[in-house]
Simulated assay, not measured.
Amino acid sequence: MAARKRAANRYYSGPPSDHFDGTLFFNPDGKPPGRFLDLLKWQLNGERSKWPPASPSPFPRAKPVPRIDGRALQVTMVGHSTLLIQTAGLNILTDPVWSERASPFSFAGPKRFNPPGIAFESLPPIDLVLVSHNHYDHLDLATLKRLKAMHDPLVVTPLGNDTIIGSAVPGMRLSTHDWGGKVGVGHGVVIHLEPAHHWSARGGRDRRMALWASFVLETHAGNIYFAGDTGFHDGINYRLMAQKHGGFRFAILPIGAYEPRWFMEPQHQNPQEAVQGMKLCNAAYAAGCHWGTFQLTDEPIDEPPEKLNLALDDNGIPRERFRALRPGEVWTIPEIERR
């Protein structure tokens, strides 16, 4: 028994499960986030790399077409974990962040090193938004308010995040699910919510009160996997995805915010682990995200793509199959043989 009674969960109330103890969510057979003293040890280690004042993308801002139909699949990098997926007549955004900072404050916190790869006004009609968890670099309420006003998309998100979004963005259409849940969104597309090895918090008193997740998009163009934000977790979740869904035409996998490993390893995989994840989940093509836009950890800004290429070479995987996308970069994903 804890010496002090835990605060009630402010976001979600439901029965215990293999990843919810009745108050807090957790990673089954996994590792919890670091303690406050560990955070201080990291912040005071003096090993934080100096990033340049800005890191503009070599690609111009993209102007996506309104719709892409059939089995064609096109993705456009906006920045960090925000990508536009266009297929089957649907326009889908992952973890949309157009704000200048990934922070609860407009004047402090991680600031963008490059502008979004699509100007907000140039977005095509947005049908669907996937929000993987509630950290500020993934759940940006200011952006969701803008999306509600201009596009009124459906937001699919794991348990508890609906409370956060719904209270800040009245009338936003929300579809909230546990791991293993699924929802049909039209055009023959089904969204599955699946495990990720991570955690959640908006402040110091709500740790693990909302769930985190990855997403599988089951489409006529093939399966798409958005891993959200995740540690490698011995590849357990990647193996589960291959077993459950049979493989993927395309995967979006995080490759950044991984140093120092003693602190970040449970929650952020590194590029070498991302390549292993690509292999384990049986993805034909993959895009690296979660790097180069916000400085969250210690590694240099250009290290993730360099280490990604080395890991691909070491595993005999052609570099064109797993690309560290930059803002504004557009990629038409090749078709693969139907399964």
Score class of each variant (00 low, 15 high):
T230H: 07
L128A: 15
H135M: 15
R173L: 05
I85S: 11
R205F: 15
S122Y: 02
W331M: 12
E100Y: 04
A2N: 08
V78R: 04
D234T: 09
H233R: 10
W212V: 02
N309T: 07
M241C: 02
Q74G: 03
A149M: 00
G292N: 09
D21F: 03
L39C: 05
P170W: 08
R101C: 10
S122I: 13
F107H: 05
H187T: 06
F248K: 00
A196S: 15
A201C: 14
L296R: 02
E299A: 02
P334A: 03
L141E: 09
H80Y: 11
P153T: 11
L308P: 07
L253D: 06
P170I: 06
I301S: 04
L159F: 07
P327H: 00
R112T: 00
V330L: 12
E337I: 10
L93S: 11
D140T: 00
W42M: 13
G14E: 10
V189T: 11
Q295W: 01
R319M: 06
T82Y: 01
H151W: 00
Y136Q: 07
P33E: 03
Q276N: 13
Y12L: 00
G166Y: 09
A283C: 08
A251V: 08
R10E: 08
P260N: 11
P116D: 12
F105W: 15
